[in-house]
Amino acid sequence: MHDDKTASPYEPALKHHFDDLGQQHEAAMLGMWLFLGTELLFFGGLFTAYMLYRVWYPETFGAASRTLDITLGAVNTMVLITSSLTMALAVHAAATDERRKLMAFLAATMVLGAVFLGIKGIEYHHKFVEHHIPGFGFQFEGPAPERANLFFSLYFAMTGLHALHMIIGLGIMTVMLIMAWRGRFSARWHTPIEISGLYWHFVDIVWIFLFPLLYLVDRHR
């Protein structure tokens, strides 16, 4: 593993097969962007299905959508956007070599992420009480309950997949926090923080699309 002879100053973070940290950084960033491209198409399948049925069944989907708790949804959107801010500040703190700030902002991001999941859990609980979970005694007061079933299937698939990404994100942030605590990052090298930030912002942006599509369309009626 560690038999590099070409790089002149010893760099503990440099992997053997890269020439320098710049190249290693570029590779990691490009890799993360490509991964996010993959993720985009992964969510894309469900978004396509949702949009199609939303156009086909505007009445039922509108009625089903109005049962979602817009207050909790809006609060959660705020929470998530704020967590993106703290994440961006964490990346900045890493770049300026401020370890305590970095750890504080990472912790803040994690707390906000956990709050988001908590609120989401409350919403899921409401849905459970209202018998709006497909496959678990689903009931819906309306003209076409089976199509409302379709709406809630997609709602749970999309928000569930998003929540899963949040949980993975919290895991990544835990690792980052431990690495930061051990002083692994420097102004010269903090690539893991940067690519974790990219991931976090991506998960955030997915929600930015989920919220209006699931909660807001047809809300005015």
Partner: peptide, 21 residues
């Protein structure tokens, strides 16, 4: 590939939970 992944995942969910997609 991710589109196949989510599609085949939906088939599995459909079998298990009758999502209806």
């Amino acid at each position: 590939t991710p589109v196949l992944a989510i599609t085949i995942f939906a088939v599995a969910l459909e079998r298990a939970l009758h999502m209806g997609i």
